[in-house]
Design a protein around this nucleic acid. Sequence first.
DNA 1: TCTCGACCAAACTACCAATATAGTCGAAAC
DNA 2: GTTTCGACTATATTGGTAGTTTGGTCGAGA
Lengths: 220, 220
Amino acid sequence: MHMPQPNTTAPRTQSIILDAAEHQFARFGYHKVTMEEIALDAGLKKASLYYYFPTKDELLEAVVGRKRDEFRQKVDKLLGQEAPSHERIKAYARIRLEYFDELIALRMYESRPIARNRPVLKEMFLHHSQQELEWLTRLFLDGGRNGEFEVRSAGRVAALYLHIMQGLRLRYMRTLEDNGFDPEVAAQSRREFGAVTEIFLKGIEIRTAGGGERNGPAAK
Amino acid sequence: MHMPQPNTTAPRTQSIILDAAEHQFARFGYHKVTMEEIALDAGLKKASLYYYFPTKDELLEAVVGRKRDEFRQKVDKLLGQEAPSHERIKAYARIRLEYFDELIALRMYESRPIARNRPVLKEMFLHHSQQELEWLTRLFLDGGRNGEFEVRSAGRVAALYLHIMQGLRLRYMRTLEDNGFDPEVAAQSRREFGAVTEIFLKGIEIRTAGGGERNGPAAK
DNA sequence: TCTCGACCAAACTACCAATATAGTCGAAAC
DNA sequence: GTTTCGACTATATTGGTAGTTTGGTCGAGA
């Protein structure tokens, strides 16, 4: 509700706390970290934290919010660019991947409780999902307008693509839970996201010339 | 290990028990059902169950196994058919959807424990996943051979498609957990599976003629 | 405006007793 | 030999509770 305005200048206490919280969450996960530990990491005493963040939930929200804002900034830049839609969508996929990797690093998705039980985050993610749908709708709409794609309804296609991505992410998270992190699997998964995006875009592409004119190498 | 051979004739006790178990699992889920209740439902006493099934786990396995066998039978029939690969893959998607709907009806996926903690099922699903990959690989391979698809590696494409389907299923299961069953959402999800399959197939399709020759209505 | 030590109440943990239930066994009915 | 059962046990689950942790408050002071 009433958050102290973060000065746009050097690392204010506010952002020091956020850094500490992020650091601790990344190391042990939301539930295993106490407010006291975060305070210590930030060079404060616990009570001081409460001057800046009224609850642990809101601290978490702020940490995630910061990540999300960075993501949004990148997307805004992307949406403003002049480039073929399929290129921008591929770029979007890459940016999105980075974003979720950061959230995963924050142990945001570990063992249900965190993201599921916290109503704050639940709403936040829901809202973010909505936001993503709008962005993607716009991208697919553009692609439809300039004749790249055959889209009956950009909203539906965007939802389809978003749901595929969300599903693959879920699948990846499950393997994470079961087998722990494995850089090999992570890389594999990353490639898979790219490949699926490629195929999806080809699937809605309008091919004007006869035969198969490839306009980009599918893999490395 | 030593299971009494089920006669291929009328409903033997064996299958009566399976029916009862299926019925009870569907109503309350594996954990909330006691062997005694299943026995009662089958018109027996508990100890009689143990003559046919040495453990509750194996009873569960048998119930799921029956479903899986039905699924396999349908797939075998499908694989033997002479039809364009894309048609057979779409048919496969439909059959697969039915199969998982049945497992969901059995509350196989409710609140982690059931499928995750039971090593029997875990292995069973893993094995089944492998099996599916083989089937799909064959289907995509056929499509590649007869010039329908452009597939560099049928195995990779099959894995991609399978993972998309598994991901969407996971996503759907999550909404199930959160909001409970809703026929509207279920229908929506079903349509989504179909639409994604369509787009995926178009994405790897080889279009010989110039322009866009549609060979099937995408949506009703 | 910002920091802190001391305090409280609610949540979580550890533990144990009571219950429930998967699984066993010997005997009997078919 | 096949199928059923009543009575039994050992293990897992549940409910309750005492003890500890920890999120959050407050008033004093810098």
